[in-house]
Design a protein around this nucleic acid. Structure first.
Length: 117
DNA sequence: TGCTTGACATAAT
DNA sequence: CATTATGCCAAGC
């Protein structure tokens, strides 16, 4: 059967090897039940000051099928504000369904769940 | 081409 | 704890 292939929407998606592609590869390697922070992803790519691009990359790439975007949270273990408030709740539900617990301040206990590559 | 806006992080105030 | 400033780099106008 033929799979529908969408044309690239952004330069980054069209350019393999670009920063975004590296981000996607890394995010895909986060195991179930664990989380990583935006800054951590950036740091692992050798760009400790580019955490912003990580978030931007995820927002710009909903067309990456097997991308566990929900396993990426901010430095405090919280879910970052989005345009869509529903997505924030959805992310939390996905994490909880993987066994990731939140504390009373709505934050993931990074000490327990943060991914250690 | 230049300016503004972001799923961020960190330091300073 | 909140507010501000700065670095980062891509997207969109």
């Amino acid at each position: 059967m033929k799979v529908k292939v969408e044309p690239p929407r952004t330069k980054a998606e069209a350019d393999p090897g670009a920063l975004y592609q590296q981000i996607y590869a890394l995010v895909r390697s986060i195991p179930r039940g664990r989380v990583a922070t935006y800054g951590q992803i950036a740091a692992l790519l050798g760009k400790p000051r580019s955490a912003r691009q990580v978030g931007y990359a995820l927002a710009a790439s909903r067309r990456q099928p097997d991308l566990p975007w929900h396993r990426v949270v901010n430095a405090l273990g919280g879910i970052s504000r989005r345009a869509n408030a529903d997505d924030e709740q959805y992310q939390r539900i996905l994490l909880e369904s993987e066994g990731v617990g939140f504390d009373l301040q709505e934050r993931v206990q990074l000490a327990r769940y943060q991914w250690q590559p």
